[in-house]
Amino acid sequence: MSEVLSRDASEVRIEPEGLDGLLGIPQGALGIVIFAHGSGSGRLSPRNNHVAAALRQAGLATFLLDLLTPEEEHDRRNVFDIDLLAGRLVLATRWLRQRQETSRLTASYFGASTGAAAALRAAAAEPDVAAVVSRGGRPDLALEVLPAVRAPTLLLVGSRDGPVIGMNERACDALQAEKRLVIVEGAGHLFEEPGTLDEVVRHATRWFLDHLHPSAERS
């Protein structure tokens, strides 16, 4: 999966914070999806790389970003500091708007595990975000800001991820924007079971394409 990514994405760094990312922009990109990874994961996550490669094939640019520096990751408190992670996601969104090659691309967020909470907190602060997709996420960690999220939000949860299903149901009830909760049959928390990650790709791709700016051409 990472081999696919390396052929059509480039290493970039957000300074002075020193945040490393992989930026992939297909020709005629319709928008850009920024990834917020879960605890213990980063821009080289094989599952998120797989999703990102599929999104690029569908005409969406992708930005897989390490929301923490290697030094910051040594302090486990930072890994679960949702406010810090959301702030870094907002920083990345604004950084992309300042780059010539990405300034016109409408941003969306894809969050996994605790990264989903960061994505939703960032979406509450960035009202121009087109859409949010959560994979096996913990949106309950952003429960108090969910009524302020305007971006249409898709919550994807595995049928074998029992406690997280309930967390997502509560989050779905709290969201006031367009929303949908999808239970992926046979999937656990990491969507490692055969075919389950492809279901994530299918649902996420359609959600992002359906909620881009109306002027965007859809495939």
Score class of each variant (00 low, 15 high):
160 R>Y: 13
185 E>L: 10
175 L>D: 02
125 A>K: 15
1 M>E: 04
101 E>G: 00
44 L>K: 14
124 A>T: 06
130 A>Y: 04
148 A>D: 13
214 P>Q: 11
129 V>F: 05
204 A>C: 06
162 G>Q: 15
94 R>Y: 06
157 V>E: 02
145 V>G: 00
134 S>V: 05
207 W>Q: 10
35 F>A: 06
200 V>R: 02
88 R>S: 03
114 T>G: 00
207 W>V: 03
79 V>P: 00
53 A>K: 05
129 V>A: 14
21 G>V: 02
98 Q>I: 01
205 T>G: 05
170 R>L: 13
188 G>Q: 05
113 S>V: 06
110 F>K: 07
83 D>I: 06
165 I>P: 02
213 H>W: 08
113 S>K: 14
190 L>R: 15
67 L>Y: 04
23 L>K: 08
50 H>T: 10
148 A>T: 08
153 T>E: 03
151 A>D: 01
217 E>D: 04
41 S>I: 01
203 H>A: 04
8 D>T: 06
36 A>C: 11
191 F>R: 09
63 F>I: 02
8 D>F: 15
42 G>Q: 11
147 P>Q: 10
144 E>A: 12
193 E>Y: 13
3 E>V: 12
88 R>W: 11
200 V>D: 01
25 I>F: 04
210 D>A: 15
152 P>M: 10
27 Q>Y: 02
194 P>I: 12
195 G>P: 03
139 P>M: 09
54 A>C: 04
185 E>P: 00
18 G>Y: 10
93 T>E: 07
146 L>D: 01
131 A>P: 04
195 G>W: 12
194 P>Y: 15
30 L>Q: 08
211 H>F: 06
216 A>R: 15
121 R>G: 02
28 G>C: 10
149 V>N: 10
127 P>H: 08
59 G>K: 15
89 L>Y: 09
136 G>M: 06
46 P>Y: 11
83 D>C: 13
124 A>G: 07
57 Q>M: 12
84 L>D: 01
198 D>N: 12
